[in-house]
């Protein structure tokens, strides 16, 4: 690319202080396609040196490699053995190939947990947190400062408090005999976590996780140009029309991002274990709890390794979708 010298630097015209930083990055962007020989020259503006740069990155990479990457890859192997937590198969596990996978895929309790997870994710995250988060962000955007701050703080507290604490708060609130909810609704003796375990978990998770959607939509809504909202109002559009024609086109990307992230997190959430531990029976044994129960409680490590791998695959799919979204947005 010899003849592109003048055009390769978009900021060549202006070397102002702000443009300086941007110029640095744009040069880097250009470097990405270089022949390796030339790249050796201007790779290092601050004279760190490549050896030292590697030394700087190494500690973090070591931790990540051992405690994140390796376990993920190891799942592949564990899932192909009949490893158990104790007993003879702990000492000398044997290789069973895809045996575990065929077993898992034929196991009704796996489908039970998958179905419960779908319900949990669908109702609590995709519909619940998404909908409530957006509704709150939209209706609070013009509301007086203190009302807004109060609601936001309450919602955020539900999100930041430790899982063990909020779990107990809900156990107390939904208690059969002394719980506040039964007192308010006049339904004494109703054991929510026993009679309606999934519904309770879903309501709980909406309460727990709406904060993220609220903040994300809050940020997204503030990026809608006010002039467009005003144009719609001058044209006499109703609230719903404004939402449909002006707001949604702007925040569609955010909505997708939000949905993907909360789906990923909710799917992997372990807090329901603290509330029901999967019970009664397996009525609320969502996938994350199912893995724990088969692996640590029942000790069937190989079998649960296979399930873990299936979860990993689902996570990878969601994360790749998310990254693709991010990339598309940063391009446009």
């Amino acid at each position: 690319m010899p003849n592109t010298s003048r055009h390769s630097d978009p900021s060549g015209v202006n070397d102002g202080p702000a443009a300086g930083a941007a110029a640095g990055t744009s040069h880097h962007g250009a470097v990405a396609v270089d022949p390796p020989l030339a790249a050796a020259a201007a790779t290092d503006v601050v004279g760190l040196g490549r050896a030292r740069a590697f030394a700087f990155v190494a500690p973090a990479l070591l931790l990540i490699g051992v405690f994140l990457l390796f376990p993920a890859l190891w799942t592949l192997y564990i899932g192909a053995t009949d490893y158990e937590r104790t007993g003879p198969k702990h000492v000398s596990p044997s290789f069973v190939g895809v045996g575990n996978y065929t077993d898992v895929l034929a196991d009704p309790s796996f489908y039970n947990s998958l179905w419960l997870s779908l319900l949990f994710v669908g109702f609590s995250a995709v519909i619940g947190q998404n909908g409530l988060g957006f509704a709150l962000a939209w209706s609070l955007r013009n509301v007086a400062g203190w009302v807004r701050r109060t609601v936001e703080t309450l919602v955020l507290f539900a999100w930041i408090l430790p899982g063990s604490v909020v779990a107990f708060l809900w156990i107390a609130m939904l208690d059969r005999d002394g719980g506040t909810v039964n007192a308010l609704l006049g339904t004494p003796g109703l054991a929510w976590f026993v009679d309606y375990p999934m519904a309770s978990l879903i309501i709980f998770n909406i309460w727990r996780g709406t904060a993220f959607s609220l903040m994300l939509y809050g940020a997204a809504l503030s990026s809608v140009p006010p002039s467009q909202l005003e144009t719609a109002r001058l044209a006499g559009a109703s609230g719903l029309q404004t939402l449909r024609d002006v707001v949604f086109p702007h925040i569609r990307g955010h909505a997708l991002t939000n949905t993907l992230l909360i789906t990923l997190w909710t799917f992997n959430d372990f807090t329901p274990f603290l509330l029901t531990a999967g019970g009664p029976g397996d009525d609320s044994e969502i996938v994350s709890v199912y893995v724990y129960n088969t692996a640590i409680r029942d000790g069937r490590l190989g079998y649960s390794g296979a399930i873990s791998l299936l979860i990993l695959v689902a996570n990878v799919v969601l994360a790749l979708l998310y990254l693709r979204m991010l990339r598309k947005r940063s391009v446009s």
Binding site: H27, A38, T43
Partner: peptide, 9 residues
């Protein structure tokens, strides 16, 4: 001075 990318500065 040739920058990586071929710009002959």
């Amino acid at each position: 001075k040739v920058y990586p990318g071929g710009v002959h500065a």
